[in-house]
Write a protein that binds this DNA or RNA. Structure first.
Lengths: 197, 197
DNA sequence: CAACTCCTTGATTGAGCGTTCAACCAAGAA
DNA sequence: TTCTTGGTTGAACGCTCAATCAAGGAGTTG
């Protein structure tokens, strides 16, 4: 494994656990057993490590996130809730300290470099595009006039907001309630599609 | 104005603009025109400044946030969307760099002191309690079995998620779509209440 | 062998951080 | 006048941070 790969892997974990600003270069070095010179040979600056991390998330969303979450699910709408269940297990496994790595960065970095901001946006974009595909696959189960992109972004909204509150209150029930509300919304939409058909 | 008040006011603005970690004591001193000794006479540590800020938000939510947003609104459900409109103007006024001060802190602080975490939770709690009151005032316009606390938390979820995405994409439309989805959800709920009655 | 290219080593740099404290000041009490 | 109290001053401290760089392999090529 190259030094570059080692650093990105370590940084993915440390940025997620401690945040970007609170992760020092020294943290990355001790985790990877590298020396500072090697790190600065692979990356010009700490911010470029962040860019590497965001690119890794962007390029790995299907393999690392969606494929595991959708292993046993075919129904397009159930895929959405399977993904949310996946986040739920992460919340539980981390004793409600889980934070979406992208969402946390989005709020932690107050004056981000344009490249960083665009990569965060690209990550959100990939996520909602995957949901939007599910909504497209749901076909006529949703009302014809449904804005599927907006609804996909709303799913992300519910996930991020639910994660934030579960983490703050240290209780997964806050996430569960957000999912339940979203479930109710989908139930109403499916009902409206049936009646309207 | 006491030194303590000066510091809290300056910190509210700076933590909101730059985040907690990126705001240095020196920043606070130059903004308030105080010396470090005065600050440390008023607060034992930087974290206690943060606590002061969170207490100020907690105690000022009605006067500073809700009263202005609800100045011309009586209808309980419209009050919810009036509050969201208030956030929208903040987003627009800041060229889509607005972040909810509480939400940003919630995600920036990865290992918060229990007292800090509880204050963030209390702030969310006050916010959702105000929404819950609106939902209670809406009475039978919502289906009888509606879990009004969960729905209030869902409104917070939509706000935080919408703000996060608008900020990331630098476009208020992402916030607007989140609000529109929430509006659609309320419309469906009101319709269900009417039919079921 | 030498020359060249990658990559690594790790002590070092200088800036910035939160925090401290002896000295100082103004105003009221004795 | 002298003492006390509550607050202010600002230089200094110890530390951590991201980043640097001269020196030194290791491998390949001619």
């Amino acid at each position: 494994m190259s030094a570059r790969e080692k650093i990105v892997l370590a940084a993915m974990e440390l940025f997620w656990l401690k945040g970007y600003n609170s992760t020092s270069i020294a943290d990355l070095l001790s985790r990877t057993q590298l020396n500072s010179g090697s790190l600065y040979h692979a990356f010009p600056s700490k911010q470029d490590v962040l860019i590497g991390v965001l690119e890794a998330y962007r390029d790995g969303i299907h393999q690392q996130l969606l494929a595991p979450a959708w292993a046993d699910v075919d129904d397009p709408i159930e895929k959405i809730f399977a993904l949310l269940r996946h986040y739920r297990t992460l919340i539980v496994e981390t004793d409600c300290t889980y934070g979406c790595p992208i969402g946390s960065l989005a709020l932690e970095l107050h004056e981000p470099d344009p490249k960083v901001r665009e990569l965060i946006a690209a990550n959100f974009g990939n996520w909602t595009a995957a949901i939007e595909q599910c909504l497209a696959d749901a076909g006529k189960r949703l009302p014809g006039e449904t804005d599927r992109r907006a609804l996909a972004q709303f799913v992300l909204t519910a996930m991020e907001g639910g994660v934030m509150q579960a983490r703050t209150h240290r209780h997964v029930a806050y996430f569960d309630r957000a999912v339940a509300q979203l479930r109710a919304h989908f139930a109403l939409l499916e009902q409206a599609a049936k009646v309207g058909a």
